[in-house]
Design a protein around this nucleic acid. Structure first.
Lengths: 201, 201
DNA sequence: AATGTCATGAGAGTCAACTCTCACGAAGGA
DNA sequence: TCCTTCGTGAGAGTTGACTCTCATGACATT
């Protein structure tokens, strides 16, 4: 649809863009530092060209990362049959944090770039939100209907805990090793969810 | 002790260091961007000299910020008479987040600098930990004695929530305004504390 | 085939975080 | 008082994030 029919130039642009994103994705996986010069080099493109396709590093990383996350429904397939919000949230949390751990370099670069410029934040892929919403689907009709505010609060609670920021807080500041950090965050998320569920019991 | 008795040179160094930290603290308050060149200029010192006293920006900001936080006991004086962990934690959380909000520039710069270099993290002032520990003192003999693991988990829960990272997640990513964000984080912290307390009830 | 359009590369420039070297000048000991 | 010590400034250099301009050459249009 979009491609194929394009003229030579259009196809060329498409290929260039794809190459840049692919290079970023690859770098992300290697654990190497993800910088514009590095991505451009890996994509066999000049830095100037990379900036022509992406206004800044966060945009690029964002697109590269977005492509590797499956849609929430797919990610949570293993708990698709469960109606237990606690189990679903725990799974979602572990899933997200393990994925982040495997792409630390990019995620850290992204946070560093957006923390000092809140205005560029919209470019961040809201992976956590999709996962949280999907994990909480079973509560939509109960808690969501009976106590909308409480439901919204729960989502915010989880947005704070089911996050790269939480993971890095636990590993970098609390000194936990990756597995301990994930275990801890999962427990926190479970506690919060259980507390919210108890409210409608 | 340390000063006063110093020789002219020692005093000079002391004054220089103090001037740099003071400049950083002042910049922090104005909401301006806290960069080495800016601090050096404000301190009437060359950038080279600033780097002689502090190996990097985070170290400097860290020292500047550390100086403005009162010790936990003093910060939590208003709830000193309360033995209710939930009340104490809520207060501590609000206290910390309001302080961070007032020094956003520095804190954001600090996070940006340390997130990409976990090895420099030790330089960060652990303000949150002091506050959390102090707020949880009433639980030391009960939960702390009966369920050490649960107590440790609670502290980790709170380290994630009572934090700058949580605040910025709520404002930048969730789009809450500062007051809403603080209210939300305080609720989350309260929920977690209450859940832990319930465990020993 | 001639001409225009446009993707790209190369390079210069700015700013911040650092690192290093060199030279000046003042404090301090002999 | 002479000379060493040392705190400091100035300046160059490196890297990354960007921005901007200019030249080139391939594709596209007529």
């Amino acid at each position: 649809m979009t491609a194929q029919a394009g003229t030579g130039r259009t196809n060329q642009k498409q290929r260039t863009r794809t190459a840049i994103v692919a290079a970023a994705r690859d770098l992300t996986g290697t654990g190497a530092e993800v910088t514009m010069p590095a991505v451009a080099r890996a994509a066999l493109v000049s830095e100037a060209t990379a900036y022509r396709y992406f206004p800044d590093l966060p945009s690029l990383i964002s697109e590269a990362l977005a492509g590797v996350w499956p849609p929430p429904a797919e990610a949570l397939a293993p708990v698709a049959d469960s109606a237990d919000p606690v189990e679903r949230v725990s799974f979602a949390c572990e899933f997200l944090l393990r994925g982040i751990l495997a792409r630390q370099g990019s995620v850290r670069a992204m946070i560093a770039a957006t923390i000092t410029r809140p205005e560029t934040v919209p470019t961040r892929p809201g992976v956590r939100f999709g996962l949280i919403d999907h994990a909480l689907l079973p509560l939509e009709d109960t808690l969501g209907a009976r106590d909308p505010d409480g439901f919204a609060q729960l989502k915010r609670d989880l947005a704070v805990v089911v996050s790269a920021e939480a993971l890095f807080t636990l590993t970098d500041l609390c000194g936990l090793d990756p597995d301990e950090a994930i275990t801890s965050a999962v427990r926190t998320a479970a506690t919060l969810t259980a507390a919210a569920v108890r409210a409608i019991a």
